[in-house]
Simulated scan of single mutants.
Amino acid sequence: MEYTVETRCLHLEEEKNKDKDFGSVSFPIYQTATFAHYGVGRSTGYDYTRLQNPTREQLERIVASLEGGCDAIAFASGMAAIATLMECFKPGDHLIVDGDLYGGTIRLFNSVCKNKGIEITAIELAKEDPLPYIKENTKAVYVETPTNPMMNITDIKKLSEITKEKGLLLIVDNTFLSPYFQNPLSLGADIIVHSGTKYLGGHNDTIAGFLVTNREDVKEQLRFFYKTTGAALAPFDSWLILRGIKTLAVRMERAQENAMAVAEWLKGQSCVTKVLYPGLPEHPGYEVMKKQARGFGGMLTFEVDTTERAQGILEHVKLIQFAESLGGTESLITYPVTQTHADVPKDKLLENGITDRVLRLSLGIEGKEDLIADLAQAFTAASK
């Protein structure tokens, strides 16, 4: 029997070992570093938690099921997942990446990957054809869609047709939409990246990352680097993400409802010069999103008329918290130029439209009336 995505957030198609777990509804936390053997050549199937752990394996099976992959690998953070992924490339390899990415990813590409001899070319994949940039040593294309923070939308299927024709890996960061709203593997991607800290965890209480693939050859390579570099997610954190995924469907729906309501409200404010939310029909990626995703998500970015107003809003929000991160039950407002993208060169920020007047909102599950009222009072206070 094939379950719906809502059900797969809680149950695998074939649950195993229920008797061994004493019928536990909440999957047990195997908080152990190592596993004893019955004798020489007689293993339980587990050796050492860096290599495998039952709690983490349950989480990995569920994430793989949600994304339609043959394997999902759970890491200690989203950046640990991306850093391990980059071990698949060697000096002299060339990657084409989106110009608008999370600042930590940009930092890794520019400061670590380039120093290791990996060539990086950043372009606007939502607007530019990557074909002219593909070279003999090009190995992969890396994209976020929607991008962080400017909410650019790339047509994954169209891009995958190019990467498959050229024999390149297509890597898609699916953090903003989660597997509830978007499944890049079904659109032709080879590897999915998740910051599990965000929507998968959903409660702002733990850090995790994932790589998911539907290719056996890629799975073997990723598993080798995973066990070798040792960036595995701990058992208790695995359990926290398992717990978070149980409410993924209801949280994503509520966050999207709130994002749409707040986006419409922002459009009516005279001091707001730009609202970037792919659920708005005027967004340039709206039609692509309708085609490749089941929803628009809970993230939006907006720009106000002055730096003073932007900073005043941050000073005066009360219910919405001024903090980094996203995807949790609580709504958060972020200032990209000093937080998520603080290490990105100023000229690159301006090129991407990230100014000191730009604010990013992650809508949580509070009442939308309360969120709008909080923004309204913050806007009023910032005008004084």
Results as ranks from 00 to 15, higher is better:
F27A: 10
S325W: 01
F302V: 04
D47I: 14
K227R: 14
I162F: 02
F27C: 01
K18I: 10
G230L: 04
E13R: 02
V141T: 05
K318Q: 13
S26R: 09
A310Y: 03
R56V: 15
L266Y: 09
Q31R: 13
H341I: 08
I96E: 03
V143D: 11
R107H: 14
R42T: 10
Y277H: 07
I29F: 01
F176S: 11
P130K: 06
K157F: 14
Y133M: 03
L10I: 03
E351H: 10
A373K: 15
R61K: 15
L159P: 08
G103F: 13
D19K: 09
L361C: 03
V272M: 09
Q256Y: 06
T163H: 04
V358T: 15
T105R: 04
T301F: 09
N352D: 12
G327H: 03
I106M: 09
I134E: 04
K290Q: 15
L170D: 06
I120Q: 06
I192E: 03
N258E: 11
I333Q: 07
F225E: 10
V344E: 05
T301G: 09
K20T: 13
L359T: 06
S383H: 01
G364Q: 03
T229A: 02
C70G: 01
K90C: 03
S26K: 13
G353M: 07
Y48I: 09
T84G: 10
Y226Q: 13
F27P: 09
S331Y: 05
P281I: 00
Q221F: 10
D190R: 00
K290H: 10
V141A: 05
R357A: 00
H194S: 03
K139R: 15
M86V: 00
F89E: 07
C113M: 15
F176Y: 11
I73D: 00
S325C: 02
Y226F: 15
N174I: 10
